[in-house]
Every structure is written in structure tokens, then in C-alpha cells.
Amino acid sequence: MDTAVLISMLWEGLLETLYMTLIGTLVSYLLGLPIGVSLIVTGPNGIKPAPLYNKVVGFIVNVVRSVPFLILMIALMPYIRKIIGTGIGTRATTAALIVAATPFVARMVEQSLLEVEAGVIEAAQAMGASNVQIIRKVLLVEARPSLLNGAAVATITILGYSAMAGALGGGGLGSIAIRYGLHRFQPAIMWITVIVLVILVQVLQEIGVKIANKMDNRLN
């Protein structure tokens, strides 16, 4: 294959992957963050326990999380096609990614917020802070480093999902790897995409840790 063609193909794949990963992560956080917060708030030791809500939402989150991504994507395909008009390609994959990643993100957020010491929340309650103030000014701020680390992990997981989606015509680097490496027996191209993916993961992880540490006032 012509190098220039190869590069432009890889470049396009990279952009598609980044698009799916970033949009997928962003929307997953828009949905998953409030769900994660609500799980903490309504939990048994939360600031406003609501056992029924907590159990129901927790159960839904677990169900979606226990379905392997590829199977979930296949199951969702008809519905996604109905809603956005197509079952394959970058946009369809992004939609499936959001459905799969939102519960994952919710659990990550929940784990991070669990790390906030109960005593600090209690101190805020004793000062007369409302629940909204406790969420905004205590929970989310005190857990910020952990939330950012979690976001790096979530982004990388979603990147991995997006590559898997290549098997189902999802677009991006994963799709290139499967089309050339598997269907056309061109392992070189497959390896190149693998290397690009590895570099991408490294960069995302580094950025995540860097930002998380920089924002953590416990480590000065």
C-alpha cells in the first residue's frame, strides 16, 4: 500500500477513534457522574439514604455492566438504527459506547466518592451545609484527584471498547486493524494500529495522572 494512503487512512482512523472515545467519555460522564453521586447520596451511609432507589439503580447498573460490550452492541444495534438511522459506523458505535460506559462511569464515580472521609461530611453537616452544598463543595472537591484518575481509566476503557467495535463495522483504528490484519492478511498494518493504540493509551494515562496529581493538594 502507498505510504501516503496508509498514513491518511491511519490518520482518519485515529481521528475517528478519538472522536468516539472523547464524545463517548464526555457523554458517559454527563450521565454517569450524577448517577454515581446519587448512588453515594442514597446509600446506607449516605447523606440522604433511599434504599429502594439505591437498590434499583444499583441493580440496573450491574446488569448493564455484566453484559460484554460486543454483545451489548449487537443487542442495541436495532434500537440505535431506529434512533439515529444507522447501526454501524462511528456515530452508532459512539451511541453504544455511551450505553455501555455510563454504568461503568457511575461505579467509578461511586468508588471515588466513597474515599471521602465520613468525618469531613459530618463536619459540613454540623456547620449547617445543605445536601447540595455537601455534594458540590465537599464530595466532588475532596474526591477530585480520585475522580480524575478514574476518568483516565474510564477514557482508556472506552478507547478499548471503541476498538472492539471495529469488529462490527464500528470505524476507527480498531476497524482498520480488523479489516487489514484479519480479513486481508496484512499483519503489518494491524501492528501499526496496535502501536498507535498503545501510544494513545500511554498518553491518556499520563495526562490523567499528571492532572490528578497536580490537582491533589494532599501531595505537596
Binding site: E117, G119, V120, E122, A123, V138, E142, D216, N217, R218
Partner: peptide
């Protein structure tokens, strides 16, 4: 409090 309970951030 015994454990001070300051906001670490």
C-alpha cells in the same frame, strides 16, 4: 473533632 475533619483539598 478528634480527627480534625478538615477539607484536605
Amino acid at each position: 473533632f478528634q480527627q480534625f475533619n478538615l477539607l484536605m483539598q
